[in-house]
Simulated scan of single mutants.
Amino acid sequence: MTQNINQGITQGEINSSLIITNHRLNGKNFLQWSQSVLMVIRGRGKLGYINREIPRPTIADPTYATWELNNSIVMAWLINSMEGHISRTYLFFKTAKDMWDAVKEKYLDFGNASQIFEIKIKLKDIRQGSLEVTHYYNNLKILWQELDMYYEAVWGEGLEHNRFMTHLNNECLYEFLAGLNRELDEVRGRILGRSPLPTIGEAFAEVRREEKSRLVMMGDSKEPKLMTPISNRPTESFALISKGPQPQKHARNDSGSTRPWCSHCNRVGHTKEKCFKLYGYPEKNQKDNKTAMLSSTTADDLDVRLTKTQLETLHKILGTPTTHGSLATQGDSTLFHTYTPCHNKS
């Protein structure tokens, strides 16, 4: 151990975890597994042990012990990143390079048309649905990256390379826009109407801004509407602000019929042109006065939602109408918790 430390192998490196990735090789995920494994091995400076840039020295070479130690560490990383039924078949290899080559030969097949076809099917069928745009886009991006691993074409540099990259971008753009939900048709149309087409990253950013804007607007519209003190029903406050109350406006009652509405006293049962508070009660016979008073008191002030029996009981409590339209004082005041006469003693 002292010799290894003196040769540049730290105690921390020797004791480091032998599990280097959560992507365990299961026979169907070589692309993801290999990228994850290579990233860690490269980051720890051991890539030369699987690509033979660090060749195996002879046993007499003074660096042999260091090489053998590092080779064993890399082999342990590979073994521990595989499923048990796969790792058992690679336990008896002598070098990390031999093990890596055997895994590649068995599980890597860039010409495997069935794997390319499977990715294409997923790209064709994937839709946003209930996902947020960001989640939907990330799902697509994973499939695009997997598909890129199967492309063997080398387009070099210059004009041909730029044309090929533009073609790939447009293909991704079409797939992304095709799977968006219908409520994003407007922003989809704006993007497709541009020439040249934007990059897939630019299109995603614009769609995401549109989604956030729509969510804010929908959040405002979901706020509870104002409730009128008379009817206890939601009112369209925006319409009232823009148009104002109209003299002949009618309100729909619980039975489905409409009743006149007064813009002066804000009550139902009559219009502003016939409001007694503006023009006084008409000088007619006592029967008309009594009817007007009852209409104003019961239907307007209370917005009647009582049965006939309940109204009769209320009249008995308050008193009966007199011939002058006011209420007599023979009602039973003991039925109230508090009782205070009006200022004019009526």
Results as ranks from 00 to 15, higher is better:
9 I>P: 01
11 Q>G: 00
12 G>F: 03
13 E>D: 03
15 N>T: 05
17 S>N: 07
20 I>M: 03
22 N>E: 12
32 Q>Y: 02
38 L>W: 02
38 L>R: 14
44 R>C: 11
53 E>C: 11
70 N>R: 15
74 V>P: 01
76 A>D: 12
77 W>P: 02
80 N>T: 00
83 E>K: 11
83 E>Q: 11
91 L>R: 15
97 K>M: 05
99 M>P: 00
100 W>C: 06
106 K>R: 14
106 K>S: 14
111 G>R: 11
129 G>Q: 13
132 E>R: 15
133 V>H: 05
134 T>M: 06
137 Y>L: 09
140 L>D: 04
144 W>G: 10
172 C>P: 00
177 L>R: 02
178 A>N: 10
181 N>C: 10
185 D>R: 09
189 G>F: 00
189 G>D: 12
192 L>F: 03
206 E>H: 04
206 E>C: 00
220 D>I: 10
221 S>L: 06
223 E>L: 12
228 T>K: 08
233 R>N: 07
233 R>C: 06
234 P>K: 13
248 Q>H: 10
251 A>P: 00
252 R>I: 12
260 P>S: 14
262 C>D: 09
267 R>Y: 10
273 E>F: 01
276 F>M: 07
284 K>H: 07
288 D>W: 02
289 N>R: 14
290 K>N: 13
304 V>T: 12
308 K>C: 08
318 L>G: 08
332 D>M: 05
333 S>A: 07
334 T>V: 10
338 T>S: 12
341 P>L: 14
341 P>G: 03
342 C>G: 08
343 H>L: 13
